[in-house]
């Protein structure tokens, strides 16, 4: 137990996490690209056309993983915000705020690809159905969190306030997920089920799952990248940040100098 808490403290300290994140990040991006290419090959080339929807169903390979990531990102953000507010852990504040833009991107993709899928299949770009509406509300919640975070000067206070808002909005996420079961609406039920058989054939399922893995890895890649920057920002005056800043200065100084002159 003692070793575990010690290990946790070590991992939670900004300099250690900064170093580990820097090491993990390329792996996340790289593996995301590899699994993504494999999943896209499986989805676009290998998988057969659907019996009802023909080739249009191939949007599923990005739509559904993105929808999962939109929800997952919100849960990840809210969980970190909870930890940050209760135990006042700096790393969690930064992690929560780092996951908001990534989650918002995936939610945006879900809405746009869903719209592009709905037009040929349902006959409409958009319908005010429970699931679509709550996905839109999810995007607005993300934007509210990001907006609040950028509106407050003090970084730590901003992260706490925005994290609190994320926790207030978390009630919405179960509504998004279960609304399709509560109201009988246009949107079909869940295809892939954790328990019980999925109503999709294996040749279509494995590319979908590969894409889900790829989007998860990608999500963590961008979250780690943003967290590294966020840690530098929050710990601005600390020694370890100073070392990194000066080390970076000693390296490729020419582009940095031009950057400064632009600003």
């Amino acid at each position: 137990m003692n070793i575990l808490t010690l290990w946790f403290h070590k991992l939670g300290s900004p300099p250690t996490f900064y170093r580990i994140a820097g090491w993990l990040m390329p792996w996340c991006y790289g593996l995301a690209l590899v699994t993504g290419v494999a999943g896209l090959y499986g989805g676009l080339v290998q998988a057969p056309a659907d019996y009802q929807q023909g080739d249009a169903y191939r949007i599923i390979f990005i739509h559904v993983p993105s929808a999962w990531m939109g929800l997952f990102g919100y849960f990840f953000m809210a969980a970190n915000a909870f930890v940050a507010l209760v135990w006042r852990i700096k790393l969690s504040e930064v992690l929560a705020m780092a996951s908001a833009p990534a989650g918002a991107s995936f939610t945006f993709i879900t809405l746009v690809t869903g719209s592009l899928w709905g037009k040929p299949m349902w006959g409409t770009w958009w319908t005010w159905d429970a699931r679509l509406t709550s996905e839109l509300v999810l995007l607005f919640l993300y934007l509210g969190v990001i907006g609040l975070y950028h509106a407050i000067e003090d970084r730590r206070q901003a992260a706490r306030a925005a994290g609190f808002l994320a926790l207030v909005g978390v009630v919405n996420v179960p509504i998004v997920h279960f609304s399709v079961n509560w109201w009988n609406t246009l949107h079909q039920g869940s295809t892939v089920r954790l328990f019980g058989p999925s109503s999709i054939v294996p040749s279509m399922l494995w590319p979908l799952l590969l894409m889900a893995i790829a989007t998860h890895l990608w999500f963590f890649g961008t979250v780690l990248a943003r967290t590294r920057t966020g840690l530098l920002e929050v710990d601005g005056g600390k020694d370890w940040v100073r070392r990194i800043v000066l080390a970076d200065d000693a390296g490729p100084s020419a582009p940095a100098a031009s950057e400064r002159s632009h600003v």
């Binding site: 943003r226 920057t229 530098l232 800043v245 940095a256 600003v263």
Partner: peptide
């Protein structure tokens, strides 16, 4: 994040 990182680094510097 890359652009943001560059901005933050130059600001801190």
């Amino acid at each position: 994040p890359r652009a943001q990182r560059r901005r933050v680094l130059s600001e801190l510097r």
